[in-house]
Design a protein around this nucleic acid. Structure first.
Lengths: 156, 156
DNA sequence: TATTGTTATACTCTATAACTATA
DNA sequence: TATAGTTATAGAGTATAACAATA
């Protein structure tokens, strides 16, 4: 097992005997730690598409809700309108989405995926599902379903 | 265009019928949404102590691990050393913590709560436990325990 | 040579105020 | 008057490079 000589310094164990018991009893702390585990993997695997988490969420909602407005995206994703402008603008410049005049509201723009966005999201969603498998490797399918259900009971 | 609407409510409810089914099937998305629900409540209730989430986590680990070093805090909480400096400095200026020379490492400083920090954390931890009750109001005690266990299986 | 703590810095994310054009 | 989208801006949060003191 350990080919190294037995360590005599107690310093090595001191670093591992941190008592985080109180924090680990809190839903908020554990939720944050789980996010810290998932986020870098997401960023790394989505880098090839040049999509961040917000970009992917926005594109996913546009894909499954053609004609959705910026205002609806903000409400659904808890993004403030000023912070969505840059995201939409970038996706538009990349020709991934298209802004069409809203049929019944002259102020709003209906958002749609362009062909490049359709193709990108087909690949990106597949990659996200692969990432989901890796993130939940320690969970059974039932546990994964339970985890999602309980998280939704927190925020729904 | 079939935007002619002789009917009363053809797609009038479209604003509320956003399909987020794909996102809601992802652990990462649901974890993030749960965080977005918990974080503002935490900030609001901890504002009276002038403590953010990182401050509270740091103070909690110092409280339960007297003499812990900055390096250990960084490892335990996934905080980068340059970003911890300001936190520790502020807590020190507020006389909540004390930096003592480390007994066996001249480079490091052992961190301890000062009396004001002890008192503050007694109140703050009680407040956090109250917040925990509110955040998990829709969960049974068993569900709360299960949620924490499953989250830990994600990041542990 | 490696590690602890630190400074400087930059980039991202998030938040608020105010403007425009439409409703 | 209220709302959708936008601009400008400020504040957190988080990232890397480099340095001095110590191991």
């Amino acid at each position: 097992m350990s080919s190294t000589a037995p360590a005599k310094t107690p310093r090595a164990s001191a670093a591992e005997t941190i008592d985080a018991g109180f924090l680990e009893s809190l839903v908020g702390y554990n939720t944050r730690r789980a996010m810290l585990m998932i986020t870098p993997n997401f960023m790394q695997r989505m880098a090839v598409y040049e999509l961040g988490m917000a970009d992917f969420s926005v594109l996913s909602l546009i894909k499954h809700n053609p004609g959705i407005t910026s205002r609806q995206l903000c409400t659904a994703l808890s993004i403030l309108p000023p912070n969505l402008v840059g995201l939409i603008s970038t996706l538009d410049k990349r020709s991934l989405i298209e802004r069409r005049p809203h049929p019944r509201d002259g102020r709003a723009m209906g958002l749609h995926l362009r062909p490049a966005g359709q193709k990108l999201m087909r690949d990106a969603e597949r990659t996200v599902l692969e990432l989901e498998q890796l993130s939940t490797a320690n969970l059974s399918p039932a546990e994964q379903k339970t985890l999602i259900r309980l998280l939704q009971k927190i925020y729904a």
